[in-house]
């Protein structure tokens, strides 16, 4: 029996890319390990640049004064909360269709980070709402949908935790994520449908943003920083989940031996 299964031996016929090379936990594990530091570093750099732009380059807003600077984490966090749910639902769907273990692991690796960003979006939204609207919490369409999204994240994590068999837990949670993904459009269009108190989406694909360029730049850079961070966090958690679930396999034993 070969001492260590050489990943290189998985090479397909020459000239064809093996798309599925990193689809098994064993081959994905080292790749994620190498990628985490890079994404974490990118996140740190982008965050520093974004904060510099946000606080030292972007001018003061006419109506809101300095309170608007919360936008540099509120909007990116809200974007990330919805984006991560979509990515989670995607991997959940892939896991259901292709019955691949790693997809389910990736979905449950993403959920806590998504829930974190949803809570951050709600928290910063409340703190921003206090000076501008006068109350901590307003039952308007987008805030309510964001709250529902947080409950969907908790539902996903609770369902995964409640079922003992990891394979069935992944598949059940995956179906729930797909059923919940219907909620994402409701969040996105809720401002237009129920056109309530919440400020209309100042950045939308149809019309030019109603914000100064530097404000927009700061927000975009912070969004990229949050994105890099999410990838780093999800890969790191995925590695933990892989070790937990593949604990009895040989390659994990060899990895533990090597890292001792």
């Amino acid at each position: 029996m070969p001492r260590f299964i050489d990943v290189e031996t998985l090479r397909p016929a020459p000239g064809r890319i093996n798309w599925f090379k990193y689809s098994s936990p064993q081959t994905f594990f080292p790749l994620a390990g190498a990628a985490v530091p890079w994404f974490a570093a990118a996140a740190a750099v982008l965050c520093a640049v974004g904060l510099y732009i946000g606080f030292f380059v972007a001018p003061t807003d006419q109506q809101q004064g300095e309170a608007y600077r919360i936008i540099f984490i509120h909007v990116p966090a809200a974007w990330m909360s919805m984006f991560i749910y979509l990515v989670m639902a995607f991997w959940a769907g892939v896991g259901l269709v292709l019955n691949t273990r790693l997809s389910g692991m990736m979905a449950s690796a993403l959920a806590p980070t998504g829930a974190l960003f949803t809570f951050i979006a709600l928290w910063t939204g409340a703190l921003w709402g206090k000076p501008t609207w006068g109350t901590w919490w307003v039952w308007d369409a987008r805030l309510t949908s964001e709250l529902i999204l947080l409950f969907l994240y908790f539902g996903f994590m609770a369902l995964t935790a409640a079922i003992d068999d990891p394979r069935r837990a992944d598949r059940a949670a995956a179906l729930f994520a797909l059923v919940g993904v219907v909620n994402i459009p409701i969040i996105y269009f809720s401002v237009q449908w129920w056109n309530t108190l919440h400020q209309g989406a100042s950045v939308s694909l149809t019309r030019a943003p109603t914000m100064a360029a530097t404000m927009l730049a700061g927000m975009i850079v912070m969004a990229l920083a949050f994105w890099m961070y999410s990838i780093a966090a999800a890969f790191a958690r995925a590695r933990c989940i892989i070790l937990e679930r593949e604990r009895n396999s040989d390659w994990v034993a060899q990895y533990i031996e090597a890292s001792k």
């Binding site: 300095e66 309170a67 600077r69 919360i70 984490i73 509120h74 966090a77 951050i120 928290w123 910063t124 703190l127 921003w128 206090k130 000076p131």
Partner: peptide, 9 residues
């Protein structure tokens, strides 16, 4: 408000 949200985040 600003530092409250940044600190918690």
């Amino acid at each position: 408000y600003v530092w409250g949200s940044y600190a918690v985040t």
